[in-house]
Amino acid sequence: MNFELDMAQCLLRDNLDNFLARQYRFEARRQIVLGEPGWQPTLWRRFADELGLLGAGLPEQAGGSGGGAIEHMLVMEAFGKALVVEPYLECCVLAAGVLARSPGDAATALLARIAEGSAIVVPAWSEPVGGVATQARRTPDGWQLDGRKAVAVAAPWATHLIVSAQVEGTTGTSLFVVPRQAQGLALQSYPTIDGRRAADLECAGLALTAEALLGTAGASQALLEQMLDEGAAAVCAEALGVMARLHADTLAYVCERRQFGQAIAGFQVIQHRLVAMHLKIELARAATVFASLSLSKTARERALAVSTAKVTVAEACRFVAQNAVQLHGGMGMTDELPLGSYFKRATAIEREFGDVDHHLRRHARLERVAA
């Protein structure tokens, strides 16, 4: 497969790498994630105003640059290298993708606000019991939602949420845009192990206007599945940046650490481990690029490519992260080194948007259907 970036994509990658190297140093990040609100709203505005980053993968009619999956891949890899916690994945990949495929002026207007940085839209689809138990019923003024959502990442920072629900009298899934300050919506916020923020949501008599529904009632399951596949491909790209930093830090450490009068990088067993880590990263890169290029294909082709990438990347994350810690020794898991934070993010990515078992089962099911 011959894959080359065009000039605009190269500029996006290089400008973002340079910006994050200057503005997103690890020690400052550590203090931000430990404090309140846990992210940098001013930096988010700079992403929009100085870099045009928030619209890099959005359509031009919504104020974006007309990019797509490859632009998202480049941004997410750069964010993985710097361990950025700002909600680009949740807002500009997941929610923006749903809004871009939803008809109506309200969806287009909200998408434009994402591109300019004035709205942060976050999806909330997972539930404590699995499936979609949240119920929506029609009212004279629009809709009423009742139910709970679990682990909505970046929800504490959102201005709007996209909530999945089952409309009374239908069997399909529907998606609703919910303002963060809507009456009847309660959030219980908490930090995650990898330095982000999430929230559990409770909708109790949550009243919405008729325009809150995205698309047709009961017909959003395919839209939701595509959103989750795009999210899985995006975290695979983020993992490439995380693993690259784990590998680079480990290489630097073994070149400094000395035993028996020489750097341990000179020992053949150490060299073999570093090469194996590099090979795992390159295999993960090939699978991630293919998955990103497959997001515009048929649902089956997209799902097969994404599941393949997710399994490949999850196994690479575990191998690279564990070897990085082992080669650093006990200090590898302390908070004194960035390595521990990168290890935690790599571990979270293993399970985000489905773990290895989930994607192996899905891949096998799709292959059986084809046969």
Rank of each mutant, 00 (worst) to 15 (best):
P179T: 14
R180H: 06
R180L: 01
Q181T: 12
A182Q: 10
A182M: 01
A182I: 14
Q183F: 09
Q183M: 13
G184W: 00
A186G: 06
A186K: 01
A186Q: 03
A186Y: 03
A186E: 01
L187I: 13
L187D: 13
L187Q: 12
Q188N: 14
S189Y: 04
Y190L: 10
Y190I: 05
P191M: 05
P191W: 05
P191L: 03
T192L: 07
T192V: 09
D194A: 14
D194V: 13
D194N: 10
D194R: 11
G195E: 05
G195S: 10
R196I: 11
R196S: 12
R196T: 15
R197Y: 08
R197L: 06
A198P: 05
A198M: 07
D200T: 01
D200Y: 00
D200H: 10
D200N: 07
L201E: 03
L201P: 03
L201D: 02
E202I: 14
E202P: 01
E202S: 14
C203A: 08
C203G: 01
G205P: 06
G205A: 07
G205T: 13
G205W: 02
L206M: 09
A207H: 10
L208Q: 04
L208V: 07
T209Y: 03
T209M: 07
T209G: 11
T209I: 10
T209A: 00
A210M: 00
E211C: 02
A212I: 01
A212H: 08
A212V: 02
L213S: 04
L213K: 05
L213T: 02
L213P: 06
L213I: 08
L214A: 02
L214V: 04
L214Y: 08
G215S: 09
G215H: 00
T216D: 00
T216H: 03
T216M: 00
T216G: 00
T216Q: 00
A217S: 06
A217T: 13
A217G: 07
G218K: 10
G218V: 08
G218A: 03
G218Y: 06
A219V: 15
A219M: 08
A219L: 13
A219D: 11
S220H: 11
S220V: 12
S220W: 04
S220M: 12
Q221T: 15
Q221K: 12
A222G: 12
A222M: 08
A222K: 09
L224N: 14
E225W: 09
E225F: 10
E225D: 13
Q226V: 13
M227K: 06
M227S: 12
L228W: 05
L228Q: 15
L228N: 15
D229P: 07
D229R: 12
D229Q: 00
E230V: 09
G231F: 05
G231W: 05
G231L: 09
G231P: 06
G231E: 07
G231N: 14
A232E: 12
A232I: 12
A233W: 04
A233Y: 02
A233N: 02
V235I: 15
V235F: 01
